[in-house]
Amino acid sequence: MPRLADHEQRRRQIAEAVWRIASARGLEDVSLRKVAAEAGVSLRLVQYYFGTRNDLLLGALEILNKVAEEHTRAEVGPEADATPRQVLRTMLVGMLPLDDERRTRYLVHLAYFVRSLTDPDLAAAFSAAPPELERLTADLLAWGQERGEVAPDLDLLPEAELLLSSVDGLQTSLILGQRTPEAVLALIDHQLDRLFSLANVAT
C-alpha cells in the first residue's frame, strides 16, 4: 500500500502542474487532461487524487498556500543573534517575486484571485483562509515591543495588516516593472524604520 508521503508527493506533483499552467496561461486553461499531460501522469490518476476540475483547482490552491506558509516560516527560522526587525525584514523580502519560484507563486495566486471574483467556491476558500501572516507579523512587532524597539502604544494588528498590504502592492509593481528590486527593498526598509523607530533612536 502506498505510503502517505507518496500520496502527498503525487498530489504536490499534480498541483505544481496546475501552477505552471495557471502562471503561464491563467486558470481558464486548466483542465484535467491538460494537467495530466503537464504532470506526466494519466488522467485517471488526476481524477483519483482530486476528482473534478473544481476539486483540482481548490486542492491546488490549498497546497500552494501550505507551501507559501512553509516557505515563510522557514524564512523566519530561529537565528541566535537576529533582531525582530531583521526577522521581519527577511520574511517580507521572502514574499517578493524576486526569483522564478516566488514569481510563479505570485502569478498563480493572482490567477486564483481573478477567478475568485466570479467563482463562489474559490471566493469562499480565500475568505476562509486564516490570517496567519497578519498574526505572525503582529507577533514579531510585539517581540520588538518587548525589547523596547517598537513604541509600546502601537496597535499591532492594524500595523501588521498595513505592512503586508504595502508588500502586496510592491509585489505587483515588481511584476509590472514599475519599480526595481532595489527600490522595493528601500521602501520596505523605510516602513520598518518607521515601526522600529525606538531602536533607531537608541542607536
Rank of each mutant, 00 (worst) to 15 (best):
L88S: 01
T104Q: 15
V67Q: 11
Y106P: 06
T172D: 07
E161P: 04
L32D: 02
L98S: 01
R25V: 06
A160M: 02
H71K: 14
L122E: 05
T83E: 10
L176C: 08
F126Q: 03
Q145L: 10
E134D: 14
L141D: 00
D29M: 10
V114L: 12
Q13G: 06
L64M: 10
L198N: 01
E62Q: 13
G40H: 08
A138R: 01
D168Q: 14
E132N: 11
P158F: 05
D6R: 13
R135G: 04
Y106W: 15
S127N: 08
D6I: 12
F113C: 04
Q47E: 14
N200C: 05
N54I: 09
M1D: 11
L163E: 01
L110S: 12
Y112C: 11
S165L: 15
L61Q: 14
L98W: 01
G40C: 08
D155Y: 00
L122M: 12
W143K: 02
D193F: 07
A199I: 02
E149L: 11
A183N: 09
Q13I: 11
L92N: 03
D121Y: 07
R105E: 13
R3Y: 10
A74I: 05
L164D: 03
Y48A: 13
A24Q: 15
M1Y: 12
D189R: 11
E101L: 11
T203H: 10
R53K: 15
A22W: 09
G26A: 05
E146L: 15
T137L: 08
Y106Q: 08
R73M: 10
R135C: 03
T104I: 04
S42D: 07
A183T: 09
Q47N: 03
H7A: 15
L164R: 08
T172Q: 13
A36Y: 09
V167Q: 01
D99C: 00
A138S: 09
Q86C: 03
I63T: 12
A17C: 12
E161W: 09
Q178S: 11
S31C: 05
D99S: 02
G148E: 07
A151P: 03
I14H: 02
G94E: 03
L156N: 00
S127A: 15
K34L: 14
